[in-house]
């Protein structure tokens, strides 16, 4: 499986949500719905504080419970990669994937009756472009690339910087990394 990863530098993220709007316009996401979002996590007591901003989305897990749990095969790994897509033709809107996702990344019921989610902009990735959110980010805190390539920017960042993933204990093997 070719593994695409997103690496997000929380030291640079300002929580501006440009990634959210860039996704929404690029992918023509219906009114009121989003495929990505920003989390602000503050720890400590005034004035000893730490605040972390994180742009979150589907983790495109290598071991994706949503794919396993989907009764119709609508949720699938795209084209031999870890990119998880939903085939609207097969999706019945049963929401099994919503319960199976440890990241609450499948919040979206598309008005046309299927579950929608982040696609890592595979239509752009195919053309060698970054996902729309990564391209728009004004602080360039988001990076995208192939984990299999040791020389890719994402591989280099993960080699040199302290990082984490969300909910590693689920065993889903997520592919969105946060530099901390």
């Amino acid at each position: 499986m070719a593994r695409y990863a997103m690496v997000i530098d929380t030291k640079l993220c300002i929580g501006c949500a440009d990634c959210v709007v860039a996704c929404k316009t690029e992918n023509k996401v219906p009114e009121g719905l989003n495929r990505d979002w920003v989390v602000e996590a503050t720890q400590g007591t005034y004035p000893k504080l730490e605040t972390e901003f994180r742009s979150e989305r589907c983790n495109h897990c290598s071991n994706a419970t949503c794919v396993t749990m989907c009764p119709t095969g609508a949720s699938h790994h795209w084209n031999g990669t870890n990119i998880v897509l939903v085939d609207p033709n097969k999706c019945t809107g049963c929401k099994a994937c919503i319960s199976a996702c440890p990241y609450d990344a499948r919040l979206i019921m598309h008005p046309e009756g299927y579950i929608d989610k982040c696609t890592f902009c595979h239509h752009r990735v195919e053309k060698g472009m970054d996902p729309a959110c990564v391209s728009a980010c004004p602080t360039k805190c988001m990076h995208f690339g192939l984990l299999d390539d040791p020389n890719s920017e994402v591989s280099q960042l993960l080699r040199t910087r302290k990082h984490k993933v969300l909910a590693p204990e689920t065993g889903n093997d997520p592919n969105v990394y946060y530099l901390i």
């Binding site: 501006c16 440009d18 959210v20 709007v21 860039a22 316009t25 391209s135 004004p138």
Partner: peptide, 8 residues
Amino acid sequence: RLCTRGTA
């Protein structure tokens, strides 16, 4: 790279 508002 536009900002949040410019993208909108």
